[in-house]
């Protein structure tokens, strides 16, 4: 199973095409706030760009561990998959993620979780993001 890696963020130009396409494809929404990947700057635009996105935790998966209903299921290769039916919107996962990669959709009452589909990498014009095969 492939996982997303933001391995070359030094190349980032801050166009946010990753966020626009993630929100469009995965949430059918025009707002970048619905994206599961977030590009941020530190100290304004003169700072470096960083990608806030699921790190594809493998053995210990904090967000899945704290989920009280089993809505977040460990994904082969790393990361989690969201079972919307089981989610009660408690936001425990949002707090559990050390890198703040999970945001909460206050309209849908569901967490926005990266499923490592790779749309963002496909539309990254500068090869910052890669969908790579996780070596066992």
């Amino acid at each position: 199973m492939k996982v997303l890696k933001a391995s070359a963020m030094n190349r980032c130009i801050g166009c946010l095409s990753c966020m626009i396409t993630c929100a469009a494809v995965n949430q059918q929404n025009h707002s970048i706030l619905k994206s599961a990947i977030h590009i941020k700057t530190s100290g304004g635009l003169s700072g470096k760009f960083i990608a806030i996105v699921c790190q594809a935790c493998k053995d210990d998966v904090p967000c899945a561990e704290v989920c009280p209903t089993g809505a977040l299921v460990k994904r082969e290769g790393g990361g989690v998959l969201l079972d919307k039916e089981k989610c009660v919107g408690c936001q425990c996962c949002v707090a559990a993620c050390t890198v703040d990669a999970i945001t909460f959709d206050h309209v849908a009452l569901l967490p926005i979780v990266c499923k490592h589909c790779g749309v963002c990498a496909r539309f990254c014009p500068h090869k910052c993001l890669q969908l790579t095969e996780e070596v066992q």
């Binding site: 130009i13 801050g14 166009c15 946010l16 095409s17 626009i20 970048i32 635009l45 539309f123 014009p125 500068h126």
Partner: peptide
């Protein structure tokens, strides 16, 4: 460095 406006994959800045 090169940068882009939001939504521009070209990055002319």
């Amino acid at each position: 460095r090169k940068m882009a406006c939001t939504g521009c994959p070209v990055g002319c800045i």
